[in-house]
Design a binder for these strands. Structure first.
Length: 525
RNA sequence: GGGUCUGUAGCUUAGUCAGGUAGAGCGUCCGGCUCUUAACCGGAAGGCCGCGGGUUCGAACCCCGUCAGACCCGCCA
């Protein structure tokens, strides 16, 4: 059984209808790691719907969280905004300076991410956390938190093992300058929290407004109650013993609600370079990734992996395998003849991953395949610049019957982007040789050399089409009585530096007569 | 120091929650397609399931220990 289906089954034992949630702080550019947060939750949500139960999926944007520091992509102007809620500060310009006439910081980073989510078929109910404060929905929880301040304090200290500072308060008011840093609470009289800020100015915050927020560990627990969340998968950083999930559970109860069950997922890493981090620039944005990888494949990367396994995201060779695995699974699904328990489980898991990878829920996976492997398409895209040539070639190789469908057209366009990007794996790149290496020259026999020389003469005169080139290779090899394989190998060594490759006549046709003859003459003279 | 997760073929992994002969894909090798698209088709090799103990008629799976890796106990998906 697929993990999402299993979770859905478990959830349905506890609740009749579900509210599945994700939460992210929009402190910077969103990266592909955030997609795991989103998709893990969204797939559970879909699994609930697929099992015939009611479910809602909400995406809580932690827009009330403060700016913690001046990140590398921000200019020093942001120094003055440290401690401000992200919803209250201006978005950065491309050069990192604040854009005072534009949208706020949280929205700025959120928007492109939501566009990416739309492309992968995720349409959440978006909740801006600062609005939940603004409209007073947190007031009751804040009141309870303040009343039970001692108990919450004890819970955090006991479970997380860290000591809270003297005078810790489960509410951080926004001070007179807009920052929550250094504001000391001096009293509480519902609905007002009284404070003195770092400038020594006194004031009060209305807990029914966005004039302050609960600290992270309390805020999260309060959200569970306010939104009636029944499931919120958390990154492993929150899931560790003593982490915010563990303290959230008792705090949620203190605040009068029943917490969701603990569920923890692993991180996505960029292969070989450790965890994603906006600050080190070690990222791939969801938009960038979607320019290269079809959305259903991106979903599949998440769906095929159990949530407790870490994923090495890699736009190199393993992406080929992943995509081809997807195609295979669709076109050749595991059969159900064998009823052994384990095989049945494996089959259900694979088919579940496939089902949850569809951009639109309920779509037939076979509509999402191109009928051509990534590898093959990558090769064709490199040797043919005209799309129509590719469709012709695919018809000839019987990958395609007639005109390409939209899926295939999209795949090709993404493939071209991928090839043009720095993410395309070098191993898959077709490299036309400038000049033959000494090593390769040794591999060429005198017979092969004769063949190449005579071919050179012929190629100077013929009409430059793939068909003509191919026919001349064939006829010449018969004329001078060289094994046809040998003849091709010689050409591959000369032009690609390998002993095998894609149809050589296509490549010669694509690079042109002049270039081809140049390579040949440079190598043999 | 305390804790969580992960460890199965060269690689990616299924199977662990409900113990019953270890499955798959990629890669590799061999062969076919009357011979060149890196396409397509067929076959083969490859596993003390991290290691040691225990429970059991029977353990990849349960229990104890141990090793390795990742992560958490300020902030992070």
């Amino acid at each position: 059984m697929h993990w999402a289906d299993y979770t859905a089954m478990r959830l349905s034992e506890k609740y009749d209808s579900q509210v599945i949630a994700s939460g992210i702080t929009p402190s910077g550019e969103f990266h592909i790691g955030h997609l795991r947060e989103i998709l893990t939750a969204e797939m559970i949500h879909r699994a609930c719907l697929d099992s015939g139960k009611k479910s809602e999926y909400i995406f809580i944007v932690d827009s009330m969280d403060p700016l913690r520091r001046v990140y590398d992509f921000l200019s020093d102007d942001y120094e003055k905004y440290i401690g401000f809620p992200l919803a209250n500060i201006p978005a950065p310009n491309p050069d990192g300076t604040p854009n005072y006439n534009g949208e706020n910081y949280a929205i700025h980073f959120l928007k492109p991410f939501l566009d990416a989510l739309k492309q992968i078929g995720v349409i959440p109910k978006v909740v801006m956390n600062h609005e939940t404060y603004e409209n007073g929905d947190f007031a009751e929880k804040i009141d309870l938190a303040i009343i039970n301040r001692e108990e919450i304090c004890e819970v955090i200290e006991k479970i997380s093992g860290r000591e809270l500072p003297e005078g810790w308060y489960p509410y951080n008011p926004v001070g007179s300058d807009g920052s929550m840093d250094g504001v000391i609470v001096t009293g509480y009289e519902k609905p007002y929290v009284y404070w003195t800020d770092r400038k020594g100015i006194n004031g009060k915050s209305d807990i029914r407004k966005a004039e302050g927020k609960m600290p992270w560990r309390v805020d999260w627990a309060a959200k569970w109650g306010v939104h009636g969340i029944t499931c919120e998968p958390a990154g492993k950083d929150h899931g560790a013993a003593g982490g915010s999930f563990d303290t959230g559970i008792p705090i949620c109860r203190i605040l009068g609600s029943e917490p969701p069950g603990k569920m923890v997922y692993e991180w996505i890493q960029l292969k070989g370079s450790g965890p994603m981090s906006s600050s080190t620039g070690n990222t791939i944005g969801p938009i960038e990734a979607l320019g290269l990888v079809p959305p259903e494949i991106l979903r599949y990367v998440i769906a095929r992996t159990k949530i407790k396994k870490h994923i090495d995201f890699d736009t190199g060779p393993s992406l080929f395998e992943m995509a081809d695995e997807y195609e295979r699974l669709v076109s050749n699904p595991p059969d159900d003849k064998d009823l052994s328990k384990k095989k049945k489980v494996a089959r259900d898991t694979a088919l579940g991953a496939l089902r949850l990878s569809q951009v639109k829920r309920g779509d037939n996976p076979s509509l999402s395949t191109a009928g051509v492997s990534f590898r093959h398409l990558a090769m064709l895209a490199q040797i043919k610049s005209d799309d129509d040539d590719i469709w012709r070639s695919l018809n000839k190789s019987q990958h395609l019957d007639g005109k390409p469908n939209q899926v295939l057209i999209n795949r090709l366009s993404r493939m071209r982007n991928w090839i043009d990007s720095r993410h395309f794996p070098e191993e898959a790149r077709i490299k036309i040789q400038d000049i033959i290496t000494k090593e390769n020259k040794k591999k060429i026999s005198s017979k092969q050399e004769e063949f190449l020389n005579q071919l050179f003469t012929k190629l100077e005169k013929i009409e430059w089409t793939e068909k003509e080139i191919s026919e001349n290779i064939t006829s010449l090899s018969s004329e001078i009585d060289i094994n046809r394989r040998e003849a091709y190998v010689a050409l591959y060594i000369l032009i690609l530096g390998t002993e095998y490759g894609p149809r050589i006549a296509s490549i010669m046709n694509e690079i042109g007569r002049e270039e081809t003859l140049k390579i040949m003459s440079k190598s043999f003279q």
